[in-house]
């Protein structure tokens, strides 16, 4: 029915004896929100790293928009329209939040202008708008390393969104965030992402978040996909509940 945006087939990668990917097959559909769950060490981040060109699988293929992207550099893959955010937010810590956002916008527009200011009025407004959508306007002038974890996470994702990717990969967007903040962050995220029409894949440990916002869930276990389907189905599966969610809840 709906079109496939990202297609991974037979991905394999082992670090020493540990199989981080042991035959991963996954199709991500246009416009969906796909959650990846599973215990630590199951290879969830490895999948994101392989898709973004940071790690190279030993076997398998990845197609994005019908074209192979395996072997491309992270930079080239970003240019094709795959953005990512990080489990540990990767902000320019000595820049202000506004500058971080403006740099991401500049990265899309082309940064090669050595003598016009980064915060020229048009870019400044655009960066402010972006921060506004993520509820970060109030901290725009703070240094990035002065933010709390929730705001850092949002800023990190905002920078990925500024590149206007068609696929956004998010590595644990709510980890390390205080429980009270969690739903606020996720709601902000879902609102912004739905408005841009981006396809999103996110690694998540919180099953409430998954149940509420994912269109489909993929369950990772020891480098393989153990189950895939709508959250209602997958999360109700007793085997998944016992083997994956049980462990994840304790982790």
């Amino acid at each position: 029915m709906s079109q496939v945006l990202l297609s991974a087939k037979g991905l394999r990668l082992a670090f020493g004896g540990v199989k981080a990917a042991d035959g991963i097959d996954l199709d991500v559909r246009h416009g969906e929100f796909l959650a990846i769950i599973g215990p630590n060490g199951a290879g969830k981040t490895t999948f994101i790293n392989m898709t973004t060109g940071y790690l190279r699988p030993q076997a398998g293929r990845i197609e994005f928009d019908g074209k192979p992207i395996l072997g491309l550099s992270p930079r080239a893959i970003v240019r094709r329209g795959i953005g990512r955010s990080f489990q540990l937010p990767q902000l320019f810590s000595e820049h202000t939040v506004l500058e971080n956002a403006a740099l991401a916008i500049a990265a899309r527009r082309g940064i090669w202008s050595p003598f016009t200011p980064l915060l020229r009025p048009r870019w400044r407004d655009e960066a402010m708008d972006l921060l506004d959508r993520f509820g970060l306007r109030a901290v725009a002038e703070s240094r990035a390393d002065a933010l709390n974890e929730g705001a850092r996470k949002l800023a990190d994702i905002a920078m990925a969104v500024a590149l206007e990717p068609s696929l956004l990969l998010m590595d644990e967007p709510t980890s390390g965030v205080a429980a009270a903040e969690k739903m606020v962050i996720v709601e902000t995220l879902v609102r912004v992402l739905r408005s841009t029409g981006v396809t999103a894949v996110f690694v998540e440990h919180d099953m409430d978040v998954v149940a509420r916002f994912a269109d489909r869930v993929a369950v990772w276990s020891q480098g393989r996909i153990a189950a895939l389907g709508p959250p209602g189905e997958v999360l109700a599966d007793p085997k998944v509940r016992r083997e994956v969610i049980g462990i994840a809840a304790n982790a």
Binding site: R75, V78, R84, F92, H95, W112, S113, P117
Partner: peptide, 26 residues
């Protein structure tokens, strides 16, 4: 002027988060 420009600010980004630059396509 250079240090306030996108290139200059990206230069300062090398000090703190070079990986981010690469993942922004820079």
């Amino acid at each position: 002027f250079y240090l306030a420009s996108p290139m200059g600010r990206a230069l300062a980004g090398i000090k703190t988060r070079e990986t981010r630059l690469e993942f922004m396509g820079v």
